[in-house]
Design a protein around this nucleic acid. Structure first.
Lengths: 209, 209
DNA sequence: GTCTATAGTAGGATAGAC
DNA sequence: GTCTATCCTACTATAGAC
């Protein structure tokens, strides 16, 4: 029993290494701009070996997306705590979205490429999974508005704005680094972004906080 | 004199057609994912003819960027009217940024690809042209804050948020269409976005309006 | 200026030894 | 599982006729 287990462990380790490498390369160059050779070099193996683990570039790309999509969609939804106040819920939401940009900048960029290119792979998945969650969260906002907990705003555009504002720290990090004059975004920058955005959004909504 | 003028006019017309086609193709697939054939087909001519007008794919891509960058950078800066109130200045700013996303969605996506990929072509240009304008506008915000015209916020992150929130209607239009259940974004959607964002930002800043 | 033909090459994928 | 060798398609770019 030890033998196959060890083999499987090695296989999993190699696969994970390939996925990590692929995520980085796809993030920087997009799907079409990335060669299997580039991924192989990043992973420190041969491209033939990648094709042994993933039967085609398409499949590798899909695996990269699948590897992150659950975490990704989870963070695009409110935590389901009906007890929490609007201010707390939104603050935590923004915080987690910024953390996602900080901890998975490559994954974020891969998604950005995918969406800009018209979501050829993810379209169906987004309709089936993101859309219902989105509509549920829109209703939550509407209930807060009806109850007078926050200022009346269009909930749909509120989400579009929060998503854009949080993801820009991953997707457009190059531009932000350029303008801040920094070689890379550090913990301080993400803290500043979080503080700014939380205060900004909560002020705009006039949520009790 | 009529002959060369007419020839030049034709040349300009063909060039413009190629640039429009290239902008659309690059927007959808990125630089690496776009073939000269695809651009040619979109423009309704042969790829050899494109190479006659633009000596290489790189040059064509650069021409597409150059064709829009001045307009682009202009809209990322405040209109220089020292008389205008903060509320008016910001409202007009957001309005114009949304209009840019509405009128030039392809150009916006090409820029998005370029920035996500690390701005290999535009980096220098952004440092030399966007950065000084950005720092000037940050100072304007700081003066408004010091004068008590708007709530104290971090001006840098304010710009990052406004840019992200306005550009998302071009760059991430696929996702927004999916969630709104629409085949394309219409004038109404951009109007809603503008109204939401103006009110949202001005409320957050507590600018007199 | 616009066409046909073609050179040259990068990159995805397969075959087969070990 | 990992390697070497190789095939084949797609694409950029050039040459040259008209």
């Amino acid at each position: 029993m030890t033998k196959p287990t060890k083999t499987q462990a090695n296989r999993a380790k190699t696969e994970a290494g390939i996925l990590r490498a692929a995520e980085e390369v796809f993030a920087q160059k997009g799907f079409a701009g990335s060669s299997m050779d580039a991924v192989a070099q990043q992973a420190g193996i041969s491209k033939q070996l990648i094709l042994y683990y993933f039967p085609g570039k398409d499949k590798l790309y899909q695996a990269v997306l699948e590897n992150m999509i659950d975490l990704w969609l989870e963070k695009m939804q409110f935590n389901d705590d009906p007890e929490a106040s609007p201010a707390c819920t939104i603050r935590q939401y923004i915080q987690q979205k910024i953390e996602l940009s900080r901890d998975y900048p490559n994954g974020s960029k891969v998604f950005a490429h995918e969406i800009i290119n018209g979501a050829p792979v993810l379209k169906t998945y987004l309709i089936e999974n993101l859309k219902p969650a989105f509509e549920r969260d829109v209703k939550i906002i509407e209930r807060w508005i009806a109850a007078g907990h926050i200022r009346p705003v269009d909930p749909k555009h509120l989400f579009f704005t929060i998503w854009a504002a949080t993801q820009t720290y991953a997707d457009f990090s190059t531009q932000i680094q350029l303008l801040l004059g920094k070689p890379s975004l550090e913990q301080d920058d993400f803290n500043e972004a979080t503080e700014f955005l939380c205060n900004f959004v909560l002020s705009a909504l006039d949520a009790q906080h």
